[in-house]
């Protein structure tokens, strides 16, 4: 899907000038749109948001001379149009290559699920190590947060939020941040195990 066409210095210059005649402001605008596109591809679930963002810039830059750069066209809209096409291509590639997305966690019915985990024993081991690296209170919050299901879960989370004097949303965000640091730690741990 990635074209990697040659971008001329002139075209890139035109792109920056389109952002602003002031070089500093143009660079800031470039960074701003770049961050936005990375966010877009990230939440679309794409595997390599940075690469897809670069591809979006490449395509816009290559077409810069044929685009309507009049003031009433929002720059974001133009970038979005290109990014959307790249996202569609990403989904088509996924289909074409039949990328393996069946989860690896497998167990036989009726067996002890956790003990029967396949190579995910590594994942589990990493998860346990990483949870132990968290502050004791944070570890308790994560464990309590993911405890129970459905209605009981909602009640438990409400209770937990009250204990921590947080709103329900603030609790979600707190756990999400803890999970993000856990994820980083798990990835590092898995890499060390060469999984």
């Amino acid at each position: 899907m990635l074209n990697n066409p040659q971008i001329t210095k002139e075209d890139f210059g035109t792109l920056l000038k389109w952002f602003s005649s002031d070089e500093k402001i143009a660079a800031e605008k470039y960074e701003e749109i770049r961050d936005g596109l990375i966010r877009y591809f990230h939440f679309k679930g794409c595997s390599d948001p940075i690469n897809l963002t670069d591809e979006t810039f490449n395509r816009v830059t290559n077409k810069i001379n044929s685009l309507d750069l009049s003031k009433d066209v929002k720059k974001i809209t133009i970038f979005y149009g290109f990014a959307y096409n790249i996202y569609r291509e990403y989904l088509r590639d996924l289909e074409r290559n039949e990328i393996e997305l069946i989860p690896d966690i497998v167990f036989q019915e009726g067996s002890n699920e956790i003990t029967e985990l396949n190579e995910e024993n590594n994942l589990l081991e990493c998860l346990e190590n990483c949870l132990n690296e968290l502050d004791e209170n944070d570890k308790k919050i994560v464990i309590k947060y993911y405890n129970k299901e459905k209605k009981e879960k909602i009640e438990l989370r409400k209770e937990l939020a009250e204990q921590l004097e947080l709103t329900a949303n603030a609790l979600h965000v707190k756990v999400h941040r803890l999970k993000a640091s856990l994820k980083k730690c798990i990835n590092k741990c898995l890499n060390e195990k060469n999984v």
């Binding site: 995910e120 589990l124 999970k179």
Partner: peptide, 14 residues
Amino acid sequence: ETIYLLKKYSNRDE
């Protein structure tokens, strides 16, 4: 997979 394991871990740990 991570959330699945966290849920499993939490339920057992409790």
